[in-house]
């Protein structure tokens, strides 16, 4: 699974890096981005999925 934070939609709510800091990071202004090229290791999809589903701006694309 791969995740990607769309910078055009992200408003810096920070839900992704709050819920799954191992997969998402904040920049100096609070906007989110994916770590490790967005690659989610097998077996950890649920946490990444929950982070994506909690984004109020629906800014996180998930590729299965």
């Amino acid at each position: 699974m791969k995740v990607h934070v769309d910078p055009a939609r992200c408003q810096g709510h920070g839900r992704c890096y709050d819920l799954a800091p191992q997969f998402f990071a904040s920049d100096d202004e609070g906007y989110g981005s994916e770590r490790n090229g967005g690659v989610i290791p097998d077996g950890q999809e649920h946490e990444a999925q929950v982070a994506a589903m909690n984004c109020p701006e629906m800014a996180i694309d998930v590729e299965q």
């Binding site: 408003q11 810096g12 709510h13 920070g14 609070g30 929950v50 589903m53 909690n54 984004c55 109020p56 701006e57 629906m58």
Partner: peptide, 20 residues
């Protein structure tokens, strides 16, 4: 509630600056 895409801090460009 595990999935909670609420709008308490607004949506869009005026997202509450002080949300954190």
């Amino acid at each position: 509630r595990e999935v909670n895409r609420h709008a308490a801090f607004g949506l869009g460009i005026h997202r509450c600056l002080g949300s954190h």
